[in-house]
């Protein structure tokens, strides 16, 4: 117990201060996809199928979020208006995200991502430090997880599904005292012909009003899709 406590205290003293909560700066310039992703053949097939359904009126009026299906990695990290918070332990870094109340466990004990990791919305993550930058490797992201990508040579952004072999490498560091930067390299042959890169900035908040909150989407979900994909709202409470 004493040894474990000592390791924990020593570790915490060596780590950068990421306390407080973090909010995506969705209005910031120079954020999002660093450059237009180069789509693979399979990626173009997905995009063109979404376009066909859209033009034929076959897309539902709302995405699956309406049924409280969470966003997964990597899109969940820059969710606007939702905070996240880091918790450092001796063998892992835990991140709680208000968006859909999701949790990430980033193992920092030197393990590798198991080949039989359970596919999950947040995937399976390992991490190590390179000076003051946390490098996080993530795989085993459930392939039903949705992503929105910009389409080359257009102004479109299309919701697609990544493949089972998607791999993410995040480099997380403080840019200044209250700004966190996450650069993510996304490798996924089901979408991209070469690794795609994103950059997002997060502002630190402190104070009780900024503490993270519970988010149980099924608590009072008064929106739904009918069998034809039309969106409805339950407007009365009687």
């Amino acid at each position: 117990m004493v040894a474990a406590l000592g390791a924990s205290v020593g570790m915490a003293a060596d780590l950068p201060d990421w306390s407080g909560t973090w909010e995506a700066q969705y209005r910031a310039t120079n954020t999002g996809y660093v450059k237009t992703p180069v789509l693979s053949k399979a990626g173009w097939a997905q995009v063109n199928e979404v376009r066909r359904k859209r033009d034929a009126g076959e897309l539902p009026e709302s995405g699956e979020g309406i049924n409280c299906v969470p966003i997964g990695m990597p899109d969940i990290m820059p969710s606007p208006l939702f905070q996240f918070e880091f918790y450092f332990t001796p063998d892992k870094i835990v991140t709680y995200l208000e968006a859909y109340g999701m949790v990430r466990w980033i193992h920092t004990d030197g393990r590798e991502i198991p080949a039989d990791a359970i596919p999950a919305f947040m995937g399976y993550s390992t991490g190590h430090w390179e000076v003051d930058t946390l490098v996080v490797e993530t795989a085993a992201v459930y392939e039903g997880t949705r992503m929105t990508i910009p389409v080359p040579d257009s102004d479109e952004r299309v919701e697609v599904r990544h493949g089972p072999d998607m791999h993410l490498t995040e480099r997380v560091r403080l840019l200044d005292g209250d700004t966190l930067e996450i650069r993510t390299t996304i490798t996924d042959p089901a979408l991209f012909a070469e690794p795609a890169q994103t950059r997002h900035l997060y502002a630190r908040h402190r104070g009780q009003e900024w503490e993270v909150s519970e988010y149980v989407c099924a608590q009072n979900n008064r929106t739904y899709l009918d069998e034809e994909g039309k969106q409805h709202f339950i407007l009365k409470t009687d």
């Binding site: 310039t29 954020t31 999002g32 237009t36 966003i71 820059p78 606007p80 992503m147």
Partner: peptide, 22 residues
């Protein structure tokens, strides 16, 4: 190419995967 693709406020108003509904 070589330009960030800014998602901007549309993220807030439900045109993205972030939103609960349209």
């Amino acid at each position: 190419d070589c330009a960030f693709i800014v998602f901007g406020m549309s993220l807030v108003f439900a045109t993205s995967t972030s939103a609960h509904h349209s």
